[in-house]
């Protein structure tokens, strides 16, 4: 571990920020965050959270670095082609901030292990690239009573929400019911800088959530359209008929 004066230097711009300060930085250092997906959104989320001094970051991703990833997944580099994204991420983040602990899970997270893995963290950040994975994480976070910060992108647009039924907010399925199918004909194109905007927004809201700074995204869904410069902050509420959390949101059994 590096000595205290180096750590003081590393986080100096947080320390002098009234909304974070030493107390907030200590909270970041004590936090355990699970980031699922080390792709487009995972890249800025992981870079900014590691840089911010999140004490323990777990990374789950079963993919390898492909050439077509590098247009937007700025965490990875050409020299890491065909290598597991978890290994590429680990090397880059360790170089960025050797003071933090990083655990890697080079696997796809399924229901069975998701609940126990999620339960070992204070916050889960959903950077997955498919609806099925999002529902698995949502269910696990509800069961484990762990807040879920979820972001998604498509083309030039994205959305970000914080889901935590144990604190009275909706779960992901309240807002996007599980009946909603991924549209097969959906254009999978994405502009390279978009995950930077949406992922950095997610990292920022993770920092706010952990330090308690400012207004929470709980009960909100932020829609971002970078092509037409439109943004909406929608109010979203728990659905009493939600098959995941409805009616038993205080139980989390």
């Amino acid at each position: 571990m590096l000595d205290a004066s180096l750590s003081e230097d590393r986080y100096a711009r947080h320390h002098i920020l009234p909304e974070i300060g030493h107390k907030g930085q200590d909270r970041l250092g004590a936090a355990r965050v699970l980031v699922v997906g080390a792709g487009g959104l995972g890249a800025p989320v992981l870079l900014y959270l590691a840089a911010a001094g999140i004490g323990h970051i777990s990374i789950a991703d079963d993919d390898v670095v492909s050439l077509s990833n590098l247009q937007r997944q700025v965490l990875h580099s050409t020299s890491w082609l065909d290598q597991p994204k978890t290994q590429s991420a680990l090397a880059r983040l360790h170089d960025l901030n050797p003071e933090i602990e990083i655990t890697t899970y080079p696997v796809r997270i399924y229901d069975a292990e998701a609940i126990s893995l999620v339960g070992q963290h204070d916050l889960v950040i959903d950077c997955t690239d498919n609806l099925e994975g999002r529902y698995v994480l949502n269910h696990a976070c509800f069961k484990a009573r762990v807040p879920l910060l979820s972001g998604a992108i498509s083309g030039w647009e994205g959305h970000v929400g914080l889901y935590h039924p144990a604190q009275g907010g909706p779960c992901f399925a309240c807002v996007f019911p599980e009946a909603v199918e991924e549209r097969p004909a959906q254009n999978k194109g994405v502009v390279g800088a978009l995950p930077g905007v949406v992922g950095a927004t997610m990292a920022l809201n993770a920092i706010k959530h952990i330090t308690g700074a400012g207004a929470s995204l709980l009960g909100k869904l932020l829609l971002i359209d970078t092509l037409w410069n439109e943004q909406r902050l929608l109010n979203v509420a728990q659905d009493p008929a939600c098959p995941v959390c409805g009616g038993s949101h205080q139980e989390g059994c």
Binding site: G37, G39, G40, L41, G42, D126, C127, T128, D129, N130, L131, R134, G151, A152, I153, S154, E157, G158, H159, F176, V180, E182, R183, Q186, K188, V190, P195, L223
Partner: peptide, 8 residues
């Protein structure tokens, strides 16, 4: 009017 986005 908006659909869920799924990409990451």
């Amino acid at each position: 009017l908006f659909p869920p986005m799924t990409g990451g």
